[in-house]
């Protein structure tokens, strides 16, 4: 089922992506997966089997919170949203990622 051009999400970056996705407002799990795939122009693909455990872990860690609500189509779904702690984490994780990206980029540039 997997196309070669699609990337499975790197271990550990899922948290960052979920936080970033929720930054624009609360979403249910399916919407989170959809958003990541659409925004990344289908370059990234969320492993659905690991999304929900990650969401629950993040909730236990206090960076996101959840609530059962009705969707626009009037169906019950669990909506996740950022907590204030989550917002701080998002900022920090983004910086970490930028640093990592820069570091990796430098190394690659040097190797070429």
């Amino acid at each position: 089922m997997r196309s070669g051009s699609r990337q499975d999400i790197l271990q550990g970056t899922l948290t960052l992506l979920v936080l970033q996705t929720l930054g624009s407002g609360e979403k249910h799990g399916y919407a989170i997966a959809q958003t990541i795939e659409q925004v990344s122009k289908e370059l990234l693909r969320v492993e659905e089997g690991s999304l929900y455990p990650a969401l629950h872990r993040m909730e236990q860690d206090g960076v996101i919170q959840s609530e059962w609500k009705l969707t626009e189509t009037n169906r019950r779904a669990r909506f996740y949203s950022l907590t204030s702690e989550g917002r701080a984490r998002l900022k920090q994780e983004t910086e970490n990622w930028e640093r990592l990206k820069a570091g990796v980029g430098l190394v690659l540039g040097w190797a070429q």
Binding site: E48, Y52, H56, E59
Partner: peptide, 20 residues
């Protein structure tokens, strides 16, 4: 297709529960 993408439902359920 939906189920295949999801993988083992029982395992997922356990893993989700494990987080909580």
């Amino acid at each position: 297709e939906a189920q295949l993408r999801f993988g083992s439902r029982a395992r997922l359920r356990e893993e989700t529960r494990e987080a909580d």
